[in-house]
């Protein structure tokens, strides 16, 4: 099976500071892959580098057989890659409906209504809140909106950056459940960056551990969950 997304020896810098030190990573079609790591390990940087902001200094990023390493961000995001960015970043003064429309703006599709119905099936709460301003939603609803907005472009690959950030455990379970349902029903490929290692590894088919900008461990979700060093570093006292 060829990879939908593969990173080879990717390095990235913020000014003079090296944030990624030669990352190799693969995501296959239909998989949920998670990337876990401590604060400042470079998880979000890796996610942003895939999106071309910042661009990788060396190494290559291949998506669907084409090299996207040097493409500008907006062109990468038009190749059926969608991202729900860290901190949700919804459009606060615009309504839920307008937020969702923004997600479909550049994909050039004509059946926006059908896609939106699918999003509403996944997150019925969004339908109830359709005319409300994004900024008035609760944290969990905002995360649903961020994911829903990303789904509006009918992506093949969904990038999720810390969807559990600042949410109650019950809401986190709800959102992770929705991601699993989506993956099973439509075969959507998901790359999930998480600090909530326990939940993320249970959800994912495979996982990578990022330490100081380099991958130190990889394996299936169950394998990683069973490793004593993972338990010690990321799971102590974090059982939900």
């Amino acid at each position: 099976m060829t990879a939908l997304l593969s990173l080879t020896g990717v390095t990235a810098f913020y000014g003079a500071i090296q944030a990624l030190r030669g990352v190799d990573l693969e995501v296959h079609e239909g998989e949920i892959v998670t990337l876990i790591g401590a604060n400042g390990a470079g998880k979000s940087t890796l996610m942003m580098t895939i999106c071309g902001n910042p661009q990788a200094r060396t190494g290559s990023i291949v998506y669907n057989g084409a090299d996207i390493t040097r493409l500008p961000t907006h062109l990468i995001m038009r190749q059926r890659i969608a991202q729900a960015p860290e901190g949700r970043r919804i459009f606060g003064r615009m309504t839920v409906y307008e937020n969702l429309l923004m997600g479909a703006e550049v994909s050039g599709q004509t059946d926006i209504g059908t896609v939106m119905e699918q999003v509403f099936t996944l997150f019925p709460r969004l339908k109830e809140r359709m005319t409300q301003r994004g900024g008035t939603l609760s944290g969990g609803e905002q995360q649903m909106l961020a994911i829903g907005r990303a789904l509006m472009s009918r992506p093949r690959l969904l990038l999720l950056d810390e969807p559990s950030l600042g949410l109650a455990p019950l809401v986190v379970r709800q959102i992770f459940g929705a991601i699993r349902d989506l993956n099973r029903a439509t075969g959507l490929t998901v790359l999930l960056v998480e600090q909530n290692a326990y939940q993320a590894l249970r959800l994912a088919h495979r996982g990578y551990v990022l330490v100081n900008g380099a991958i130190t461990m990889a394996g299936t979700g169950a394998e990683l969950l069973a490793r004593p060093e993972i338990r010690a570093a990321y799971l102590e006292g974090a059982h939900a």
Binding site: C51, N53, H74, M77, P85, R89, M102, E105, V106
Partner: peptide, 20 residues
């Protein structure tokens, strides 16, 4: 709509494929 989205959040706009 893209103008207004840009006012709200530039990074989010980029992530949605909008040519900022």
């Amino acid at each position: 709509r893209a103008w207004e989205a840009l006012r709200e959040d530039e990074v989010a706009c980029r992530s949605l494929g909008i040519d900022v």
